[in-house]
Design a protein around this nucleic acid. Structure first.
Lengths: 223, 223
DNA sequence: TCAAAAGTGTTGCAAATACACCCATGT
DNA sequence: ACATGGGTGTATTTGCAACACTTTTGA
């Protein structure tokens, strides 16, 4: 095969990291510092290095650029051919992950200006590269996937209330669910089990805390 | 970025082309002619060329190696890191397609020994590269996908009987369906519409011919 | 007349939906 | 005392699964 051809192809990974906060779906973005995308926001991503697996590169890059680590990254789709990068041809393998919002301290390197979560509905209109397309694709896939797997668990901390769980579903699905039917469903599926109580916070009746029966990926007909 | 690193990565596409024949799910394979995989069977695939999109490369390679053209190819997954190819690092973007069995004349080039459909359950135990893994992955995805989209249409010719349609579903899902319930379902979903009659062939009562309402990809809760 | 596939309805059960009020706590 | 979210049950509807016989044709 022609080496000149092959030298032009580079492989990148880009991560769509979602969290639910306060009834909104948010996505983790970094702010670029180099032309031609100086000041633009982007998904955390970059080129793979020698000897690295795609999965490994995704994890490394995510941690370097945002400080987020130890998350379950799932491959989403491979994007190309949209004159992606002004600097020659790049193929980008996109990854998705869901993480709990609580207590993440985000930190980036001096190669970037900032890192923060953005409300998915209020993301800057121009993202760097084709990251807008990737984000839209990821969000659709997430909404589909949450309906037939137990993957919500990745959005929640170890212990949570049923209202928080319902809120996570409502946020991702972008529709309201009936409280009684919701509770009946998740309990009958044995998705979660109760532990102690919760009084902290709210000026209202304390809620029972639950945890997941399993944090392994499983196929479950949720809705 | 380090050029020595990047020169090591090459990008290939591999196609999983399925058809239903005679109640069996079959997959299109080619027989290799070069070491280290001489005589081994493989999915039709190869390296992408300059200026090609991934989708374009998949279509070109499929036609060159098997003569099959004008099919809807859908990206499946990107595989890597399994010391894939003895000849340096290769990342492979896998594509899936469903085609009608009827009247395809397969032809390959002199770079390969043969091209033919294989019963998925009787594929040679060793396929070239990691193609066994890709095939298994594709088959699972196909079974899942056929349940929530109208994608079966790609397996059938323009006009077909309801029994043929049912047979396609049963083959892909690998389980039997109730005839009356099946007909009720597909008719109530307005997936298909009747046309004329069919007497040809069988020594039995002729069956009504149907065609699809839509051959565009749609989300439909089939089962 | 026989073989082989086409065609056709009803019933029971399970799951989804719709719906409204009292409870416990903090301020 | 009041505001806030926590917690609970029933009735209706809908969709799914199970099931067997008659029809039409070619050989």
């Amino acid at each position: 095969m022609n080496n000149i051809v092959m030298n032009n192809v580079r492989v990148a990974v880009d991560n769509c990291i979602f969290a639910v906060r306060d009834g909104r779906l948010e996505v983790l973005l970094i702010q670029m510092k180099k032309e031609p995308f100086d000041f633009a926001w982007a998904l955390p991503g970059g080129l793979i290095e020698a000897g690295e697996t795609l999965d490994g590169a995704a994890a490394r890059i995510l941690e370097q650029q945002t400080g987020v680590r130890d998350v379950y990254l799932e491959q989403l789709y491979t994007f190309d051919d949209r004159s992606r990068d002004p600097d020659g041809r790049v193929i980008s393998v996109a990854y998705v992950s869901l993480i709990p919002w609580e207590g993440r301290d985000l930190k980036t390197t001096d190669k970037y200006r900032a890192v923060q979560f953005w409300d998915c509905d209020r993301v800057p209109s121009k993202l760097a590269y084709d990251h807008r397309e990737i984000l839209d694709y990821a969000r659709n896939r997430l909404a589909a996937k949450i309906q037939y797997t137990n993957c919500v668990w990745s959005l929640l901390p170890e212990r949570f209330t049923l209202s928080e769980l319902q809120n996570a579903y409502e946020t991702v699905l972008n529709r309201n669910l009936d409280k009684r039917n919701f509770r009946k469903k998740v309990l009958s599926l044995h998705l979660v089990k109760p532990c102690g109580e919760k009084s902290s916070g709210g000026r209202h009746r304390p809620a029972m805390l639950y945890s997941f029966e399993s944090r392994e990926p499983e196929l479950v007909e949720v809705f």
